[in-house]
Write a protein that binds this DNA or RNA. Structure first.
Ligand SMILES: [Mn+2]
Ligand SMILES: [Mn+2]
Ligand SMILES: [Mn+2]
Ligand SMILES: [Mn+2]
Lengths: 221, 221
DNA sequence: TTTACTTGTTAGACCTGCCTAACTTTACTA
DNA sequence: TAGTAAAGTTAGGCAGGTCTAACAAGTAAA
C-alpha cells in the first residue's frame, strides 16, 4: 500500500501523463514543478516508486506509470472526485472549496467507505468541475472537450468541465455566472491578446485568454 | 498544527488520563503499550509535545495535557465521533466497522467540513457506541455510567454506552442483540468468575466478566 | 537500608521525505 | 560538430518517527 506521498506522486504522474502531447511520458523537472518539490527529491522518489513496481523509469529517461501504478492512481482519482461530489452535493461546499479538502480525503484507505459513498451519492458520473469519476473497475472515460479558444467564431458550445483548481479562478467563474452545462456562443476573438467575447444567458462578456483556456466545451451537435 | 502522529499521542493522553484513578496523570510505559510503540519512542515524542506547548512533563514525572493540548485532543475526539456517526447513520456501517475508518478521518483538517457534517447529521449528541460527542466549543459531557458488574442483583439498568473498540467484542454484542438503550435486569452474579446472568428482551443470558466490564449502564430512576 | 524489580531515559541506528550544492548527461543551437 | 543551456543525477545533510541495547531512577520488600 502506497504512503500518502507516494499516492500524490502517482496521481501527479497520471495527471501530467494525460496532458495533450505527453502520451504518458513525464519529466523529472516537470513533476518537481507540479508537486512543488526539488528535482532531487523527485529523483529519490522515482527510484522508490520503481522498486515498488509502479512506474517505468531509467536514468535520464522519461517516466511513465505501469499497469499497477496506473490502477492505483485511477483509484485515488476516483476517491478524490467522489469526495468532491460529496462535499459539494451533500454538504453544500462551493466548487472552489472542495479540492483542497478532497486532497486529504482521497488518502483514506477503506474500499467499503468509497463503495458506500458512491452508492449514497447515486453513482455520480461527474464531479463538481465536470470531470468524469472513474468507476469501481478503474475505467475512466476520456473527456471529449476542447478549450473554448479553439472554437470558431459563431459556434454554439456547451461547458462540459473547467480545468484548474485555483479557488480564485473558480470564484471568478461563479461571479460571471458560468456553471457546468451552460451554453456559450462565441461572438468575437480578439487577435491582439486572445481575449474572447462570448454570449450566454442573454448577456455578452469578454474573457481573457487565460480564463478561456480553462473552459472545456463540446461543439453542439 | 499537530502532525497525525502528534494528534494520536494527544488523543491517547486524553483517553488514558480520563480513566478512573488516572486523574489526568499518565505514565510513559502505559502510553507506549496503548499506542503500540516502545517506551523510548514515547519519550522522544513527549519531549516534542512539551516543546510544542501541549503537555506538562518533566523527567521521571507523570504526563498530563495542558489547556491547549486538551483542547486539541477534544477536537480530535469530536471529529472521531462525528465521523463514526456519519459512517453508521448515513452510510450504514455496523458499529464494529466504524472505529478503524474514523481513526483515519479524524485527522482531516477542515473546520468547515466538521461544522457541515455536524449540521448534516442533525447535531448528534452521542456516537454509535453511546459516547458523548464534544460540542464545537470543546465541551465534553462526562459519561455518568458504570460497568454493569458494579450493579446490585435485582436492579434494572439501561445500556448507555459500550467500552472498547475491538470489532469482535462489538460483533458479539450484536449477536446477543445487545444495543445502546436496551434495559437489563441483573438476575445473578456468579462469585466464582464474576459472570453475570442478565435478563433483557424477554430472555436470560449469561455473560462473562470481561463482556460485562464493557457494558456501561445507568441505574434507572 | 540494602536489594530487586519496575519504570523511565539515553545513545546510536534506520527509513521516509525533503533540501542544497555540485556534478553529468542530453539536447539544441551556432 | 563543437559549445552551451537545460534536464537530470549524486552526495551529503536534516527532521520526524521509530527501533534496540544499555543505562539510570524510583519503588517497595526483605
Ligand atoms: Mn480536485
Ligand atoms: Mn493528495
Ligand atoms: Mn472509535
Ligand atoms: Mn488516529
Amino acid at each position: 500500500m502506497p504512503s500518502i506521498t507516494e499516492e500524490n506522486y502517482l496521481k501527479a504522474l497520471l495527471r501530467l501523463g494525460n496532458e495533450p502531447l505527453a502520451e504518458g511520458q513525464v519529466g523529472t523537472n516537470e513533476l518537481a514543478a507540479y508537486l512543488q518539490v526539488k528535482p532531487s527529491s523527485v529523483h529519490d522518489m522515482l527510484k522508490r516508486l520503481r522498486n515498488r513496481g509502479w512506474i517505468n523509469y531509467q536514468k535520464y529517461g522519461k517516466i511513465s506509470l505501469n499497469e499497477s501504478g496506473r490502477a492505483l492512481a485511477v483509484g485515488i482519482l476516483r476517491k478524490h472526485r467522489l469526495w468532491e461530489t460529496f462535499l459539494h452535493d451533500t454538504l453544500g461546499f462551493s466548487w472552489d472549496e472542495v479540492h483542497e479538502v478532497a486532497e486529504q480525503l482521497e488518502h483514506i484507505q477503506s474500499a467499503k467507505l468509497i463503495d458506500r459513498l458512491d452508492f449514497f451519492l447515486g453513482y455520480p458520473k461527474v464531479d463538481p468541475h465536470g470531470d468524469y469519476i472513474p468507476d469501481s473497475d478503474g475505467h475512466l472515460e476520456p473527456l471529449a472537450a476542447i478549450p473554448i479558444n479553439q472554437v470558431e467564431t459563431g459556434e454554439v458550445v456547451t461547458l462540459l468541465a473547467v480545468k484548474g483548481n485555483d479557488p480564485t479562478y473558480l470564484q471568478y467563474l461563479s461571479h460571471l455566472e458560468i456553471r457546468i452545462g451552460i451554453e456559450f456562443k462565441l461572438i468575437e476573438r480578439v487577435t491582439f491578446d486572445g481575449s474572447l467575447v462570448i454570449e450566454y444567458m442573454g448577456k455578452r462578456q469578454t474573457i481573457s485568454r487565460m480564463t478561456a483556456e480553462g473552459l472545456l466545451v463540446s461543439r453542439n451537435t
